[in-house]
Amino acid sequence: MNRIFHKVMLAPEVAWLEVEAPRIARRWKPGQFVIIRPTDDSERIPLTIVDGDAARGTILLVVQGVGRTSRLTISREPGEAFTDLVGPLGEPATIGVFGRVVCVGGGVGVAELLPVAAALRRVGNHVTAVCGARSRSQIILDAELHAAADEVCWSTDDGSAGFHGTVVDLLRSREAEFRRAGMIHVIGPIPMMRAAAELTRAWGVRTFASLNPIMVDGTGMCGGCRVTVGGKVRFACVEGPEFDAHQVDFEELARRNSAYREQERLAMQNHECRIGLVLTRQG
C-alpha cells in the first residue's frame, strides 16, 4: 500500500511522485486532495491530486520541500511507501462551461492547475494557463501544461524566462483579454492568490481559489482548517478547498498558516544541527 512507483525531481526541491492508491485513482476528481503521513512520526499533510490512473492504480503528487514533513516526503525513494495515505478528500473544483477560462498558478501550484485546466478544456472552454516561477530553473511541467491548456504563458520574478514580474503582473498585463473571461481559477501562495483575487474583483470576473490551510484530520473533525468566506466560518477540508476568491479572508488565512512557524523553525534548526553533528562525526 502507498508505494512510490516513480519519482522525478522537477526542480531542486520539487518532486513528482507516482504513488500506489488504486481506490483513489478510480474516484478522484480535479481539485480534490489526499492526506499523507510520509513516516511513522510524521504529521498529516494535505497534497493536491495532480492526476490519477485507474488502470495503473496510481495517483500523481507534486510536492515542494518547504517544511520538515514535505522534505521528508520528497526524500522518499521509489520502492518505499508512505506510512499513511487517505482520500480523495474535499469537494471537486468547479468545472463548467464558461467560454474563456484563465487558470492562474504560482510556484508548485502550477502542478495543481493541470487537472483543473484539462477538465475545463475537456468540457469545451478555451483555457489559458498563466503560470509563475521565481526563475527559469524553477519552471516545472511546461510540456504537461501545454497538453492540458490551449495556451500557456509564464512569468519569472527575475525575468530569466517569459514575462518579467509576478504572475499577477502577467495577469494584469493582459487585462483586455482576461477581463472577458467567464471564470478564473487561482492556486498558489496566499499573497499571490490574494493579489489575483483583488485584481479580478476589480474586473468583475468570477474567481475561485483553491486554499491551503493547515489541516489535521481532513475529514471535518477538528476545525483547524477553518477559513472565513463571506463572513462565515467554513471548513476547507470538507466544504473546500475551493471557495469564491472574492469572499475569502486571505489575511486571516495567512495569519493562521503562520501559527506554528516559530515552532517549526526551531524544530528544523534542531534537526539540521543533529544532521550536522552526525556528518561531522562521520567526517
Binding site: D41, R44, T69, V216, D217, C222, T228, R256, S258, Q263
Partner: peptide, 28 residues
C-alpha cells in the same frame, strides 16, 4: 479564528492522536 484558539477536537487530536506533546520528535 485567532491563533491559539482550538476546538477541543483539534486540541485533543493533536495531543492524543498526533502526540504533539512529543514535538518535535513527533511531527505535529
Amino acid at each position: 479564528n485567532l491563533i491559539g484558539v482550538y476546538t477541543a477536537n483539534e486540541f485533543l487530536t493533536r495531543l492524543n492522536l498526533m502526540r504533539a506533546y512529543d514535538f518535535p520528535h513527533s511531527g505535529t
